[in-house]
Computed example of a mutant assay.
Amino acid sequence: MIEVCCGSFEDAMMASECGIKRVELNSALSLGGLTPSLGSLIMIKQYSDIEIVSMVRARAGGFCYTNYQYEQMLENLKLLLAYGTDGVSFGFLNEDRTIDKNRCQEFLENVKNEGRKATFHRAFDCTRDPYEAIETLIDLGFDRLLTSGQEATAEEGIHLLADLQKKYGNQIEIIAGCGVNENNAQKIIDKTGIKQLHSTCRGWGVDATGMGERVSFQVSDEDGDRYRSVSVDRIKKFVEICG
């Protein structure tokens, strides 16, 4: 299973047209992915039959949220479920970087009551003990775990990914993500035994209207006129290699 990380309706449609069966739907990919708009979810459901896993994340910068932020996320979760998302991706940590069981449990109850799938996202990679954390997620009832093996990329985290798959792969679906691309996908599959890969298949769109005479709305000086999108060519190569 190839899961493509998409930041828009357009991204998801391009992924679907390339034969991708599941996407993680976000907004603000430059911030690591935040809750998507309902409009994007509604339109993807209208124009495709692709499986949609919607991110529920209020802000960048960690996973221990204030009460107001949590209530906002809970409301977004209920709306995403009501409008047909097939699954959700979320993660809550305590200040000591252990799993916040209470908040996870409340989210899971909402997800399971609607018969949907729950993924614990890469907040896992910030936990202080990956083995304690994954056992907690299994006990709570998560369906999937997205992780880079607590390293900057999944390729660097191959050893932990392989061990987690060996010990827990029959209890929770493990998805290898972060830095996974057409060049290292087969290596990660072979070395870890993990059969689900998460990739941005990063590409770029171009919009030259982001710079005025005295103001700039460009994503960054480095990116210039470019903005994040998916690359059809990279998705096709990924599918060819993993198909």
Rank of each mutant, 00 (worst) to 15 (best):
E182H: 13
R202L: 15
V215W: 14
F124H: 03
I20S: 04
E51I: 12
G205S: 12
R103H: 14
G39Q: 06
G87R: 03
T127F: 11
A12G: 08
E156G: 03
T35K: 00
L34V: 08
G169P: 13
L29R: 02
F142I: 07
L164F: 07
T98A: 15
G91M: 06
G115I: 11
R116W: 14
C126E: 14
D86H: 14
N184R: 04
G141S: 12
F107C: 09
I174Y: 03
D221M: 09
S8Q: 01
N113K: 14
F217C: 08
G33M: 09
L137Y: 06
S16R: 00
I50H: 02
V53K: 03
T66W: 11
M55P: 05
I44A: 09
P36C: 06
Q171F: 07
S220H: 07
C5M: 10
G205H: 11
M1K: 08
T66N: 11
W204L: 08
Q69N: 12
Q69F: 05
R97N: 15
I189S: 03
G157W: 04
M13Q: 09
A152R: 10
H198E: 05
L197V: 03
I42Y: 12
S40E: 09
S231C: 12
N102E: 15
E135A: 14
Y131T: 05
V53H: 08
T119R: 02
S89D: 04
Y131H: 15
S37N: 07
S48Q: 06
Q186C: 05
G32I: 05
M211D: 03
E135S: 15
I174C: 03
I172Y: 04
R228P: 11
Q46V: 02
G39R: 00
E173F: 01
Q218Y: 00
C6W: 02
N113R: 11
Q105I: 12
S8E: 03
E95H: 12
I42R: 08
Y65R: 12
S8G: 06
Q105E: 15
G224Q: 08
R116C: 12
D11I: 01
D100V: 05
L38T: 11
Q165G: 04
G210Q: 08
D207A: 09
V215D: 12
L25M: 10
G87N: 10
I235D: 01
C104L: 08
Y47D: 06
G7M: 04
I194H: 01
L77S: 02
I175M: 11
E71N: 13
P36S: 05
G32Q: 04
E75P: 00
I20E: 02
R202D: 03
L140Y: 10
E155C: 03
V219P: 04
H159G: 00
I50T: 08
E109G: 13
Y68V: 09
